[in-house]
């Protein structure tokens, strides 16, 4: 990149992710940042491009029995089980504070059936302060015998289509990496009307407690996150960027500015930070500043110029 360096404040950090307008490309991933107020002692969540709040279901859910988490090499497994107070409590108890703080809120929804996704989308459609919907499609479809929505292209098409027909908001399905052909899933989401794609959700894994001679997690399986999954996330985003013309919210193991740069270079228009926040609560702000400095040093007038840069021949 031969451009002359710029002053960091001359870099346009804003991004538009399929209609989700953000002041910068850094979000916090669903389930790692609660409802935005948990980390208020460390930084102002309004500084973020967006806060993707904890996954919301129609009815309250107690979540899985413990142990729910276990540390693994360069990562962690979690099986929280979508503990949340339900969509009505989310709207009445958490949205007022998020609005008051001026946070760009992306709601994350999870349904047990196709119809529930539609109901959730409709319920959240005119709630002031919600800027977009992220779809957790790694939930079992109870009507289809528990098969995950996100692992079958036809079901991905249907769920995205159902949500799109019930909301005006930008719709961002979060793709599961636990599939053979991620491009087929991404294409199905595009056909269903997705405005952007979030990639990737956790990789399914497990751990064993040799003292108890049992799986460590009460749920047996859990979702692997953290630096361990970063190469998988980068590969999948790289593949999808080449084949599918939707903006990508990339994440999976980001713990540094450098990681975030890699995600943008393989094709992410914005990045989400999840497990990395547990390690360093200041990481999201460091990434915002670091991306801006990198762009300035390389003379990029807009952070968007980084997107997909690794694909150039």
């Amino acid at each position: 990149m031969p451009n002359q360096p710029l002053k960091p404040d001359k870099v346009d950090m804003s991004v538009n992710l399929g209609g989700l307008q953000m002041k910068n490309p850094v979000c916090t991933a669903s389930g790692t940042f609660g409802y935005g107020s948990e980390y208020i002692d460390y930084f102002d969540p309004a500084l973020l491009g967006a806060v993707i709040v904890k996954g919301t279901t129609m009815e309250p859910r107690a979540g899985n029995p413990p142990p729910r988490i276990v540390e693994t090499p360069a990562g962690m497994l979690n099986a929280i089980g979508l503990e949340n107070p339900g969509v009505e409590a989310f709207i009445s108890q958490y949205m007022p504070e998020l609005r008051a703080q001026g946070v760009t809120v992306v709601a994350n929804i999870a349904g047990n059936t196709l119809e529930e996704y539609g109901q959730l989308a409709q319920r959240l459609d005119h709630v002031e302060g919600i800027a977009a919907l992220e779809l957790n499609i790694s939930c079992p479809n109870v009507k289809q015998g528990g098969l995950q929505f996100g692992t079958d292209p036809d079901m991905v098409y249907q769920v995205v289509n159902m949500v799109k027909s019930n909301t005006q908001l930008p719709v961002i399905p979060k793709l599961s990496p636990n599939v053979t052909d991620i491009v087929a899933i991404a294409s199905a989401a595009q056909e269903g009307g997705a405005d952007a794609l979030a990639m990737i959700n956790t990789l399914m894994g497990m751990a064993v407690d040799i003292d108890r001679c049992r799986p460590t997690l009460a749920n047996i399986f859990g979702g692997l996150s953290g630096p361990a999954i970063k190469p998988v996330a980068l590969r999948m985003i790289y593949q999808v960027y080449q084949q599918v013309k939707l903006p990508i919210l990339g994440g999976g193991g980001i713990v540094s500015v450098r990681d975030a740069l890699e995600f943008m270079m393989v094709g992410a228009s914005a990045v989400s930070i999840g497990t990395g926040i547990f390690v360093d609560p200041y990481l999201p702000c460091q990434v915002i500043d670091g991306l801006q400095e990198y762009a300035a040093q390389h003379g990029l007038a807009s952070i968007k110029e980084l997107v997909g840069a690794a694909h150039q021949e």
Partner: peptide, 24 residues
């Protein structure tokens, strides 16, 4: 309890106070 975030965001350190409790 094992913890990840330490601030109430990740819900990893859940525990039932009483066996009969619904929530954590």
């Amino acid at each position: 309890e094992h913890m990840a975030c330490g601030v109430g965001a990740c819900l990893g350190c859940a525990r039932k106070l009483k066996d009969s409790d619904e929530g954590y």
